[in-house]
């Protein structure tokens, strides 16, 4: 049995026939080819799969595609304006807030949601917000720096 889900992904209307148990991350990666959203732990803890649904960050491996029916989904691929990176993407690049890059899309998506809620997060607020995003490479030092800088340029 399949169901039809309709949603807007990165500004485009999409419609897909999927099994009801299909996860949002599967829809994005397998049906829509948006592979910038990664699967790190399969169990909603590492945060590599974070996307925005209706403007809020969610772990797309926890959410059924059907739950997003009618929703607005933004993935890492939907942030840049043509060749111009989103300020948070630019901040991660500029401040070396990455090494292997696998956690980076989820980090960026989480960070943007933080700044959307709190335009000038303190270092403590950044640390606390990122509890659900794991990075094994960087020790988080540059990630915090990047988010701080990204918040400033998003505000400016």
């Amino acid at each position: 049995m399949t169901i039809t889900v309709n949603m807007t992904v990165n500004g485009k209307d999409v419609s897909a026939e999927v099994e009801p148990r299909t996860l949002l991350v599967q829809l994005l990666r397998e049906n829509l080819g948006l592979t910038g959203t990664h699967v790190g732990c399969d169990t909603s803890q590492c945060g590599a799969c974070v996307v925005h649904v209706d403007g809020e960050s969610v772990k797309s491996c926890t959410l059924l595609a059907a739950q997003c029916d009618g929703g607005q989904v933004t993935t890492i691929e939907g942030l840049a304006d043509g060749d111009t990176l989103h300020p948070m993407q630019e901040a991660f690049r500029e401040h070396h807030g990455l090494q292997c890059g696998f956690c980076t899309p989820g980090m960026v998506m989480s960070a943007i949601d933080l700044v959307n809620r709190n335009g000038a997060p303190s270092e403590t607020e950044i640390r606390e917000w990122l509890e659900g995003n794991i990075c094994r490479c960087t020790g988080y030092h540059n990630i915090v720096k990047a988010i701080d800088a990204g918040a400033k340029s998003m505000g400016g």
Partner: peptide, 21 residues
Amino acid sequence: RRHDSGHKHVSGQAVYIDDLP
């Protein structure tokens, strides 16, 4: 120098094996 793939990491364009068609 920044990581050579940095711009791809931040934009979801860096391809890992599970991302290959």
